[in-house]
């Protein structure tokens, strides 16, 4: 898993590339929560290159969502591959996250 962090239109965009699993979820958590801690309150997690996720990765998405909600921040997800979207759906996460199909849509809405 690699992360690429860019800033655009007032948002911090986190691009996740590869597999998000039990072995690297702690690293993902440190980096994402680190952004929130330092005050990046408008976050987009771009999942276009996320090819695998397990419950340990889902846990970090929920943590970030809880933290941002509690601090009047905003978290959006975009561009989930169908297999990833299915896992979010099974977990009930499509109900609690703002999910856009394109990065442009998540930047404008």
């Amino acid at each position: 898993m690699t992360l690429n962090i860019i800033h655009s239109g007032g948002f911090t965009i986190v691009q996740v590339d590869g597999h998000l699993n039990t072995l690297n979820a702690a690293d993902f958590e440190t980096q994402v929560m680190g952004l929130v801690e330092r005050g990046d309150m408008k976050l987009i997690i771009d999942c276009s290159k996320l090819s695998y996720i397990s419950s340990s990765g889902l846990r970090v998405f929920l943590l970030a969502q809880k933290k941002l909600r509690a601090n009047k921040g905003l978290l959006k997800l975009c561009c989930l591959q169908p297999s990833i979207h299915e896992i979010f759906d099974m977990s009930g996460f499509t109900q609690i996250f703002l999910i856009e199909t394109t990065l442009e849509a998540s930047l404008t809405s």
């Binding site: 419950s55 889902l58 929920l62 969502q65 809880k66 099974m90 977990s91 009930g92």
Partner: peptide, 18 residues
Amino acid sequence: DIKLSTEDRPIGGLGIFL
């Protein structure tokens, strides 16, 4: 309970469910 809101959703417990 996968119908809970963000605030009420506990962290974890999804592994076996999946």
